[in-house]
């Protein structure tokens, strides 16, 4: 067995960061059982170790400007090279923002008419910010765990609802 098919066992970020040099190191020759086991164990490790995931997501050194330690440090810490946005993500995010705004607006108008003025105003006020927050998992929060996404979207959403309600009583 060769190393190339085994590379598919690794997370995408890991393949982007280490894949090419890993294949160059493993070589083209057929692998022994021990080496296959070693690579499979490494793949499991790449999925489960937060430290390895962090290294795999770090910015590739060849993309970082030479001789600028501050920029290099910032890009290494903040870099998201392992997570790439594609056309599909952009379309989902745009659809969530536009569709969410329309749905919230419609719900606000209906609530204003059939429930109460306050409820309707709160929902209408939420239309754009809530839709924007709901689009984050497709863009800025892509690659984060579902718990992180839930907290970073859910908490600001609750704060917005609270502000909307309070603004009508203060």
């Amino acid at each position: 067995m060769r190393a190339e098919p085994l590379l598919r066992l690794f997370p995408r970020a890991w393949r982007v960061r280490y894949g090419e040099e890993f294949l160059a190191t493993a070589g083209n020759q057929s692998l022994g059982t021990q080496q296959v086991v070693d690579i499979v164990a490494c793949a499991i490790d790449a999925w489960t170790s937060s430290e390895v995931r962090r290294a795999a997501r770090s910015v590739r050194a060849d993309l970082v400007p030479e001789g600028d330690p501050m920029t290099k440090r910032c890009m290494t810490v903040c870099g998201t090279a392992g997570v790439e946005w594609n056309r599909r993500d952009a379309l989902f995010a745009a659809a969530t923002m536009i569709g969410g705004s329309i749905l919230f607006s419609a719900a606000g108008i209906l609530a204003k008419r059939y429930v109460s003025e306050v409820t309707g105003q709160v929902i209408l006020g939420l239309a754009f910010p809530a839709s924007l927050l709901l689009s984050f998992p497709f863009l800025y929060l892509k690659g984060k765990s579902w718990r992180t996404q839930l907290v970073l979207v859910g908490v600001p959403l609750l704060v917005l609802v609270a502000i909307g309600i309070l603004s009508h009583y203060i």
């Binding site: 190393a3 890991w14 280490y18 090419e20 040099e21 890993f22 294949l23 160059a24 190191t25 493993a26 021990q34 080496q35 070693d38 690579i39 499979v40 164990a41 490494c42 793949a43 490790d45 790449a46 170790s49 430290e51 390895v52 962090r54 290294a55 795999a56 770090s58 590739r60 050194a61 060849d62």
Partner: peptide, 29 residues
């Protein structure tokens, strides 16, 4: 060292900034 062990250790050393990667030469970094 098997390639799996090598890259498991390299990733950890890199995450701790004990080693750093340089620009690649002929697919090898």
């Amino acid at each position: 060292l098997g390639p799996g062990t090598l890259y498991g250790a390299l990733a950890r050393l890199e995450a701790r900034a004990w080693i750093e990667a340089l620009p690649p030469r002929d697919r090898r970094r």
